[in-house]
């Protein structure tokens, strides 16, 4: 009961502080909003880029050719062995006939009839039945190729090592850059909260002195300031989330319209998926910087 009374009073005081501290509060909310807005934009870019890279990665496959005259059972056994690997998401069998059909379509699309006449029912690719293997993690392509090469009945394994390595590197680089920018933005936000709460402490120095004299505990004096920081953090998180939510669909359709040529590559994440993560993360970050910023200020300026 005692704790609830103190909490209610601190909550009231914290909100009162926010109102009284109008301009500084506004500045803090504005900056946190700006930081979390940038964070949101950055998250859009990173998450969608990673999604696109992931998509591209899964389309980068490994092709497995078999020894001549191999039995269907052995081909089946090779397929089962590959499927059992955890990095493999799909194994597609391409028969010699399909391979020849695809080749004709890809290479001689204009002269398909001529080719059919020349070769008739013969299939020059009769020993080119293969498995197309797709991975969930392109960086594991090398080890998978090594494994497949050791399997009985495998003649040749073709990978796309360069593409795999390139995509993996870009993915890692985007991850590092995003982490660095997010850390900088968070540090700026904590510093701003610190400034706002410091101003609040200066403005209410007299009140704090009186509270100490009438026997207020450290936590009783600190709680309203911590609440102030946390509320600023929450407001600072909610504003950009609302703006970003309205912007997201607009940005996607704008990019899709402008870069229609790249529609195969530009595959965007669903808004629900993006905000399913962005909302809790932004609010947690807002609360976190509010809490950390005010607590840090208390320790620095308010030896109560």
């Amino acid at each position: 009961m005692k704790g609830i009374n103190v909490l209610l009073y601190s909550l009231k005081q914290g909100i009162k502080n926010i109102r009284q501290n109008g301009l500084f509060t506004l500045a803090s909310v504005g900056t946190i909003s700006a930081c979390l807005f940038l964070f949101g934009i950055f998250y859009f870019i990173v998450s969608n880029f990673q999604y696109m890279v992931k998509n591209a990665e899964t389309s980068v496959g490994v092709t497995v050719f078999f020894d001549e005259g191999i039995s269907d059972e052995t081909i089946q056994a090779i397929g089962d062995n590959i499927r059992n690997r955890e990095e493999v998401i799909e194994v597609k069998f391409v028969s010699a006939e399909e391979a020849w059909e695809n080749f004709k379509k890809d290479v001689f699309s204009d002269e398909e009839n001529e080719i059919s006449e020349t070769f008739g029912a013969d299939n020059p690719l009769k020993d080119s039945a293969s498995y197309e293997v797709y991975l969930n993690d392109v960086s594991r392509q090398g080890s998978l190729i090594k494994y497949i090469k050791k399997l009985d009945g495998v003649r040749e394994v073709k990978g796309s090592a360069e593409a795999a390595r390139g995509l993996g590197n870009i993915n890692r680089l985007v991850g590092y850059v995003s982490a660095a920018i997010i850390i900088i933005l968070l540090a700026v936000s904590v510093f701003l909260i610190n400034t706002t709460v410091s101003m609040g402490i200066v403005v209410r120095k007299e009140e704090i002195g009186i509270m100490k004299l009438v026997g207020a505990t450290d936590s009783f004096i600190r709680l309203p300031f911590v609440i102030e920081g946390v509320v600023i953090g929450i407001i600072g998180a909610v504003i950009p989330l609302i703006v970003l939510r309205f912007m997201y669909s607009g940005i996607i359709s704008f990019i899709a319209d402008k870069f229609a040529v790249l529609s195969d590559i530009l595959v965007f994440l669903d808004a629900g998926k993006v905000f399913g993560i962005l909302i809790p993360v932004s609010i947690a970050v807002g609360v976190g910087i509010g809490f950390a910023g005010s607590l840090w200020t208390m320790r620095k300026h308010l030896r109560v």
């Binding site: 005692k2 103190v6 009284q20 509270m211 009438v214 026997g215």
Partner: peptide, 19 residues
Amino acid sequence: LGDRSVFENVALAQRVIGA
């Protein structure tokens, strides 16, 4: 405290003890 009433000034001492 000039920003609150006589009642609130006196009540402050009670509030800090969680009354």
